[in-house]
Design a protein around this nucleic acid. Structure first.
Lengths: 159, 159
DNA sequence: CTGCCTGCAAACTCTTTGCACGAAT
DNA sequence: ATTCGTGCAAAGAGTTTGCAGGCAG
């Protein structure tokens, strides 16, 4: 059934098509371009980055479509949202079922490192249970001074 | 906990005055009203809440002054900023030197519970060190479905 | 054919900032 | 007197949304 292109994405693409079909939505050209861009861009990217990449695949993709597609991409686990409290949110292609990740964030430059933190699952359950609540998600972030050569304040912060 | 009166705050007020004086700033009427409001309002509050309270103490306080005072209040440890990824940030009167707190956040209503999480200090150090970085701060948040009577989606959300 | 989707641009929300007057030291 | 501080209002930035066609199913 899936389009028999040589593209390595045909499989995931089919899964995404199924996801939107099941929701009564349509596999438009623009939507699929955003999907393809979302899983192709590497590392953490912004909505604007995603727009650039999607446009390189389909010139007609607009900013509005990007923002309207993002919730679908998250809902279908194609990407994950990473909010580190900056002005813009970041997104990340979701590799496997890799949940429970912490972020190590440089306070001065763009660097964000994903770190496995499986104990978050236990912690979330424990804390929520103690207050009679049902855990839904957890977030753990460490802000630090990085040593990246390109970091404007390499190794700075607190003497 | 007895509600602190204006006179009871004179001590902390003095500390705050010292802080701004040491920075070469001035103890203006508006600034002190915001300070007094910041340490009086209970629970988590927004900049807008702070404005309301400060205005009840001094009619002339403007929104701009609130936003300009907040960094001073944080810098002098009078309040702490709590960013849970919503559109507005929250602030909280800083009781003691209580650092390393996690937040338990209801995904549907306003409820935010502060939870001690001292292990964050160790975790931040360990993770940062592993990447040759120097830890600066850490944040841990658990989103959950709450059982508050006033919660619009009481106990909702699937496991 | 239906009605979901799209691009465009205006709208929105919280926060920041330029300006000229006001006030703390 | 000096500067810093203030209110006002406009500017900003990222994201959302109303509208009039366009296209998937």
């Amino acid at each position: 059934m899936p389009k028999p292109t040589a593209s390595e994405s045909s499989e995931q693409s089919g899964a995404f098509r199924a996801f939107i079909a099941q929701k009564g939505l349509r596999a438009t050209r623009q939507r699929m371009a955003v999907f393809e861009a979302a899983r192709t861009v590497s590392g953490h990217y912004t909505a604007e980055d995603l727009l650039k990449k999607a446009r390189s695949l389909d010139r007609s993709v607009s900013r509005a479509t990007i923002y309207r597609a993002i919730p679908l991409l998250i809902g279908s686990s194609v990407i994950r949202e990473v909010d580190v409290g900056r002005d813009q949110k970041y997104y990340l292609a979701e590799a496997g079922g890799a949940n429970f990740r912490a972020q190590l964030i440089c306070e001065s430059c763009e660097t964000i490192v994903e770190v496995d933190a499986p104990f978050m699952e236990w912690y979330g359950k424990a804390v929520a249970a103690k207050h009679g609540m049902r855990p839904i998600s957890q977030k753990l972030q460490v802000t630090a001074a990085c040593l990246n050569d390109r970091c404007p304040r390499r190794g700075a912060a607190r003497p």
